Amino acid sequence: MANGWAGDGAVQDQIAHSIADEVSRIRSLLPQGEGCDTCEACGETIPLARRKALPGVRLCVACQQERDKEQTAASPYNRRGNKDSQLR
């Protein structure tokens, strides 16, 4: 059943778009390129297991945790420009 300006499934479409946007944002934060043996921030050795698990890693666990705290989450709103873009 249509609900005002929103078509059938508008809420599900909004949720799907929001999830896809967030997945794209997180994937863009993953390390790329050649990794390092030592942390770029503090100079500590990056364990071999971490380098194997995350190819392209450039920070040790402690420095990565600090950087992750500084990252801000994306807005929960879908900014696709339609009337229903403010649905959550």
Rank of each mutant, 00 (worst) to 15 (best):
T45D: 08
K83I: 15
W5C: 07
L87I: 09
C42A: 01
A16Y: 06
V61L: 10
P55M: 05
C39D: 04
E40M: 04
G33R: 00
G9I: 01
R88W: 11
E66D: 09
G7K: 03
C42M: 01
S24D: 14
H17T: 07
N3A: 14
A6I: 00
Q65Y: 05
A41Q: 08
A41C: 04
A41R: 11
R58H: 07
T38E: 06
Y77M: 10
S75A: 11
Q65N: 10
A74L: 12
H17C: 09
P47T: 00
I26Q: 09
I26V: 12
P31M: 05
E70H: 12
A62P: 01
K52M: 13
D68C: 02
A49W: 10
C60L: 09
K83T: 06
L30Y: 10
R67L: 15
L48R: 07
C36F: 10
Q12K: 10
Q64W: 05
H17N: 06
R58N: 00
R79H: 13
E66L: 04
D13L: 08
E22N: 12
S18D: 11
L30C: 05
C60S: 03
E70T: 13
D84N: 15
T72W: 03
D68T: 02
Q12W: 06
Q12S: 14
E34A: 14
I19T: 09
P55D: 05
R88Y: 10
L54E: 12
Q14Y: 10
P31R: 07
T45L: 05
I46S: 00
G56I: 08
C36Q: 09
E22D: 11
C60W: 02
I26H: 03
G4V: 03
L48V: 08
C39M: 02
I19P: 02
C36D: 11
A2H: 04
R51Q: 06
G43S: 03
T45I: 09
V61K: 15
Q64A: 09
G33A: 03
A16L: 11
L87V: 02
D37Q: 13
G43F: 05
D84I: 06
E44K: 03
L59M: 06
N3Q: 15
I19A: 07
L87G: 10
Q32G: 13
E40V: 06
Q86D: 14
A74R: 12
R58Q: 07
I46R: 01
D8M: 06
N82Q: 14
T45N: 06
A73L: 10
Q71C: 12
P31K: 01
A74Y: 04
L48N: 10
G7L: 07
S28D: 15
Q65A: 15
R88H: 08
G56L: 13
Q64E: 10
A73Q: 12
E40Y: 00
S24M: 03
G9D: 04
G4Y: 02
R80E: 13
R50D: 10
A6Q: 01
R51Y: 02
P76F: 07
G43P: 03
R51G: 10
A16S: 13
N78L: 11
H17K: 07
V23E: 10
E34G: 05
R58M: 02
T45K: 09
V61T: 09
